[in-house]
Amino acid sequence: MILVFVSAITLSAQEYRLAFLSHSIIHPGVSVARSFTLSEKIKVKEKKKGEKEIGKSNLFLPQINYHNVLKTENSFSIGAEIIRQRHRMKPANWTFETGFGVHYVRSFNAGKTFTIENGEVRRVRFAGNNFIAPSLSYSIGRTFYKNESMPWFFYLKPQVFAVLPYNGSFVPSVNFQIGTKKVLNFKKHE
């Protein structure tokens, strides 16, 4: 929401990504991201079957992720990825992305947390842990109904994190996203 708000007051037409996220397959969550294009090249090639258009872009992708582990934790992360995007625009509309990023993860214990000091039990509010998580990701997406008024871009994105420091070491963490992206124009009525 912070991401949407900040973008809304700064820029006009913006591309947002909203994804359902499954953490370690069974724990649900959501991911919201906003992409900024850093550089873009489009090549048009004449082939026997017709024109072929390929785009290559570098993107900056700040994102907020959330997932819940039942009765255990609510985990939020804020971070950003640098994405290398390859976009086959014609004849098909496939997008392939490879990304690496860094995230700050804050998990909140989903239950009451207590500590005992000098024989006295004290409840710790908003207890949880802080982690740093570098990530790698790969995604495949496709645009459907491209020539209609409401084209639909759909993507699948596995993302692997190394969460650290975690119990004196680190643990891998895997998210799988199924998402869509949409261009929103906040200033279209101006």
């Binding site: 039942l70 214990n109 947390t113 207590f114 500590t115 207890a127």
Partner: peptide, 16 residues
């Protein structure tokens, strides 16, 4: 979902 989770925080670790 019906059970209760208590977290014990002790010496740098939260144990459910």
């Amino acid at each position: 979902k019906q059970g209760e989770t208590l977290f014990l925080r002790h010496k740098g670790c939260d144990m459910p």
